[in-house]
């Protein structure tokens, strides 16, 4: 019965691997939370950092994270959705679509440090935006663009063909068909993609640090530099400024990412139900 024994051993290993992976995830999240939560307070979230972050709070970095994320989405969302609509509804597979897909796939594989270098030389230096929300937001927008294109494309592809047929058969133009029959049904998937893109923007360090800067002040305009939470966390940890504040910032980061993930995965069901009710 060696096949049975082999199988039992192999399946044992596989179970172990799965449990181990979950355990590592729990360890990473748990450790940061356990060490970070005690030093978390309202004051930490709303206070300004002092002594480079050794004391005080992280309010400006929270603002920086949110603003930078929003600016990048503001740019990437219309581009990404438009691109996905074009690829799925306005054209047939051709050399052109293959080229566009190649661009999207390749862009998705470009490491964030390359985005950082590019954003620095193009937006910060060449277009003279300086380290700023605008430069960082544009860089991040290019980085999350493939995520939005792909998720939108996939969401659009799940819309039943019959909706398109009904829409056309009752006199819809192509754009009417897209806006009234396709997009409403694809919306939950599209929004999930946007939220995941926001998550990537929140988590990013390498592409942000060379484009948005590390300034600890509250930004005054899109031309102001900002420091995001992830960058702040990195600087606290690497420059040995304060382990305690690093853990606390890390905990806020983890909670943010958790919330984003929970929203992303629960949104689909919620929106589908709402859509049915309307």
């Amino acid at each position: 019965m060696t096949t049975a024994r082999t199988q039992r051993f192999a399946f044992g290993c596989i179970w172990l691997a799965a449990v181990f992976t979950l355990a590592v995830l729990a360890l990473v999240v748990g450790l940061i939370m356990v060490r970070g939560l005690p030093s978390l307070s309202i004051g930490f979230l709303t206070g300004t950092p002092e002594n480079l972050g050794r004391d005080g709070g992280i309010f400006p970095t929270i603002v920086g994270t949110i603003v930078l994320g929003l600016v990048s989405l503001l740019i990437a969302t219309p581009l990404g959705i438009g691109s996905a609509i074009y690829l799925t509804e306005y054209t047939h597979e051709s050399l052109l679509t293959r080229a566009i897909r190649f661009g999207t796939e390749s862009l998705a594989g470009v490491p964030s440090i390359i985005f950082g270098l590019f954003g620095f030389i193009f937006f910060v230096t060449y277009l003279q935006m300086g380290w700023s929300i605008l430069a960082g937001g544009l860089t991040l927008a290019l980085m999350v663009l493939p995520t939005i294109i792909r998720t939108t494309e996939e969401a659009i592809r799940t819309v039943p063909q019959s909706y398109r047929n009904v829409s056309y058969s009752l006199g819809a133009t192509r754009w009417q068909m897209v806006t009234t029959a396709v997009l409403p049904s694809a919306l939950p998937g599209i929004i999930t993609g946007i939220i995941l893109a926001f998550g990537r923007a929140v988590s990013e360090t390498a592409a942000v640090i060379f484009t948005a800067g590390t300034a600890l002040n509250l930004p005054k305009s899109v031309f102001s530099p900002v420091r995001t939470m992830a960058v702040h966390f990195y600087i606290l940890a690497v420059e040995g400024i304060s382990l305690e504040k690093a853990y606390a910032t890390g905990a806020v980061l983890i909670v943010t990412v958790l919330i984003i993930n929970v929203i992303a995965s629960s949104l689909i069901t919620r929106l589908v139900r709402k859509q049915v009710r309307r």
Binding site: S162, Y163, V166, S169, G171, T180, Q275, V276
Partner: peptide, 28 residues
């Protein structure tokens, strides 16, 4: 297509209210 309206083999209710379904073509 408004002059020659079509109905398919598979019933299709668009994901909207009954009212919005029936008025869909007119709104288009």
């Amino acid at each position: 297509r408004r002059r020659a309206a079509m109905v398919f083999a598979q019933p299709v209710a668009l994901p909207m209210s009954i009212y919005d379904n029936v008025s869909y073509g007119l709104r288009l």
